[in-house]
Design a protein around this nucleic acid. Structure first.
Lengths: 135, 135, 135, 135
DNA sequence: GTGGTCTAGACCACG
DNA sequence: GTGGTCTAGACCACA
């Protein structure tokens, strides 16, 4: 897997999913985990596109979505910045998490699996290496 | 939401996802949960297409994938049947569940959420009606 | 796998191939291997259809092909008989074998495999026990 | 027989088998034999369809199967590429070869032919022009 | 009647 | 430009 560092952001892109989605997810993740700080400057669309060898339109689409989610903001003539509002980040993080969780539970329900089945699987396969939390 | 019953199968189709995927998911679910029994006859491609008001090719695509997954089998000139092998169903169910769970844990990790965070959310929002798992 | 005995013929039918082809192949095999003797009476179309729970048309199609190949002959009012001519059987056996072999060699060639590769595979996997393949 | 060259691929199509299967087989063969290199770009679905004078859906079906077999991969908006993994090709080649060989041996067994009979036939008819392997 | 293949042509998402 | 989904309708093999 090829990993690319651009400023404080790290990207790992493949061709199995839409490119703009991968940028979106990975920037979101960096913001949620504090890998890029509140108020930090994002790479410009053109710079990122060049580094990732993508069409600028593809990067722009991800940036637009980030802004719509309240995670970034454009400052005229200066570029794009991570929002300074910790509250915005928290709010977004919570709503996305809930969305993921609800979708996941629906999937499990569709397979007829109970919460106990899930816990058991996770205990067996991912039990030890839990972490990555920060609250 | 419009729900349609075809034999022992219930379908609920919208236009937010590919139609063949929705058929696929819902038939999988019915098999996994035993709503349609092992060895039972499936609706014919044409019949289901007519009931769901879609093109037979769309239904056929879902049926082909079901067969590739080992959940159904075609009998020449007779139609499509749910596999008689409980083992096939179990194997498929397990592998799909693991895939879903792994993807979910990756999502949670990308948001910097710990397993405790997840459990807490679920306890609060889905805690009471767990076990039988149905909405 | 379900095996059915009809007179001196043994059938093992599944739904993954055309039914008439399976009858054809298995009767051919029985004749080629002498499991049913030259000049022996074949089961009638109706009888075989009933035993195998098939449509008589399906059995008839196989019988027609057998007759066209010179392996059986109809005697008016008496039914269908395996040919009495050992020469006919030998001729057919040879021509079918050549056809199979040529097709097989074409497949191997299409994968870029040499005869040595094939021999090696067969030595490793089927070398010791001819006929009753069972690992 | 009409042969058509498209990029580094050569096609020879008739109407005796499904068109998508012939594309599938011939592309597989080209990959297995290295006639098209790892990582090379395949003709686009539309281009190949036009060259072979068939419907794009027919070509797409073959391409989907190639991808399912791990021999090719799609890159969003860029086209279809032969996999870069020599291992994937080798794995596929081996498993297909074994499948062909096992089926062939079953055919020979059904005709009551021994391995010696086969070798003799091949020595007589194909003995001189063997080769073309590479590993 | 069943499913399987193919065509023609439309519309969409992605880059 | 790429592939992905869907429709409508034809023709075929099999039972």
């Amino acid at each position: 897997m090829e990993v690319q560092q651009v400023g404080s952001l790290r990207f790992q892109i493949d061709f199995s999913q839409p490119l703009y989605e991968q940028i979106l997810d990975q920037v979101r993740s960096a913001i949620a985990k504090g890998e890029i700080g509140l108020g930090d400057k994002m790479p410009s669309v053109r710079e990122l596109a060049q580094e990732l060898r993508m069409n600028p339109n593809t990067v722009m689409r991800a940036y637009q979505e980030l802004e719509r989610d309240g995670l970034t903001e454009k400052r005229r003539g200066q570029g794009t910045y991570v929002t300074s509002s910790a509250e915005s980040v928290q709010h977004f993080r919570k709503s996305l998490a809930e969305q993921y969780i609800d979708a996941f539970l629906a999937q499990m329900e569709s397979l007829g699996l109970s919460w106990n089945d899930i816990e058991e699987y996770i205990r067996n396969n991912h039990g030890t290496e839990k972490g990555g939390s920060q609250e």
